[in-house]
Write a protein that binds this DNA or RNA. Structure first.
Lengths: 207, 207
DNA sequence: AAAAAATGACCGACTGGTCGGTCAATATAC
DNA sequence: GTATATTGACCGACCAGTCGGTCATTTTTT
């Protein structure tokens, strides 16, 4: 153990922090950044307004913390370490996880949208941009890695631009989630599957 | 002539309306909705604050008008009516136009992001959602139409789910623009071309 | 064609309300 | 009893939207 021992005091503090974070996520998600007030968050978290400021220095910081915790949650929902025999299997499994994630995070898409737009114009846009860039490059690199593995194992054609293709896959998945949020009739599962079918036919080496 | 004659007064009014709209687009784009003040817009448009309210009933309305005018501009940048011999040609030409649009609108992506998020949580989310849905279904239907044409002409495989595939193409293009905005190193041209190459291999009937 | 009258575009000081953040008072933990 | 945590009343910066008044332009009158 590196961490000595969480004093009960410290522990309660962490719990309260989490409670505030959860309440904030909820309220931000329902009302958007500028229409949520700190009092509202406090009420939802069942603490006094002043207490919020014991845990987070400002509204902006609270917002950013919600962002961070959601990003972490997204990563947690994706297990990127499971290795499979073939690259195709890995890619397919990734697709399944993405679709599951899209459906699981449907409620949070409003939040994500605002985070995007925060990274465009918010007061603390740099932090958000940085966070997103990290997310995308990490994920994109992972996908590119799978593609390269497939190429070197002779599963996929060897004339692929793996970096570019990985980027476009990430884009497509990303935007499907967005569409699904927009349009209740949109079925990410159906669209993603048809999409992957075509992609596979496009990248597989013909025998 | 149906329109009788634009009195010089009326004409100047229209011009000023445009000037305000342009200034507002600029300021909203730079600062985001909630951080732009009407005074700021007025200053940028070089009119008095009260004048704004002669042309637009409220800040929300002004914002929505900027949205509308930008959507119109996007459509104008796309010529969807040009017919080509083959569906493949049409699709490729669409790709070229999309890439051109991504590059042309790079400066406006910040605005678009906020519009998205406005359609999530803004006070007038219904209007924005409606606008976006219209945009996407129109465009998606167009792409689906091209795919169906290709199928019936025997260019493309006949087992395609054209609706789903069209939706995923639209998603991919959409998100590429977004990525390009995020990451200056991202080359939409390169990514989109590689992407289309794979897609074509995936949808073409093998001989 | 010149003067008078009418119009409506234009303006910015002002108001009413909102909300992030503070801090003195209070409660709780140890 | 002291330290730590919590609270909500309070402050003041900020801003959308209003309104009474000004003035350039157009229309009507003479």
């Amino acid at each position: 153990m590196i961490n000595p021992a969480p004093s009960p005091r410290e522990q309660r503090k962490q719990e309260k922090r989490q409670r505030i974070l959860a309440a904030a996520a909820q309220v931000f998600s329902d009302n958007g950044f500028s229409r949520t007030t700190m009092s509202h968050v406090a009420e939802r978290a069942d603490v006094g307004k002043g207490t919020l400021y014991e845990y987070f220095p400002s509204k902006d910081d609270l917002y950013y913390s919600v962002f961070q915790s959601l990003v972490r949650e997204v990563f947690a929902g994706l297990s990127l370490d499971r290795e499979r025999e073939t690259a195709a299997e890995e890619l397919m499994e990734l697709n399944v996880m993405m679709v599951a994630n899209m459906e699981g995070f449907r409620d949070h898409y409003g939040l994500f949208m605002e985070f995007w737009s925060a990274s465009a114009s918010s007061h603390s846009r740099e932090r958000f941009q940085e966070g997103f860039r990290e997310l995308y490059t990490l994920f994109g690199d992972h996908v590119a890695g799978i593609l390269r593995k497939g190429v070197s194992q002779g599963e996929f054609r060897d004339d692929l631009d793996c970096g570019a293709l990985a980027a476009s896959l990430v884009c497509a998945w990303d935007a499907m989630g967005l569409q699904a949020w927009f349009d209740p009739a949109f079925s990410p599962g159906r669209v993603a599957n048809e999409f992957m079918r075509v992609i596979f036919r496009g990248i597989n080496r013909e025998e």
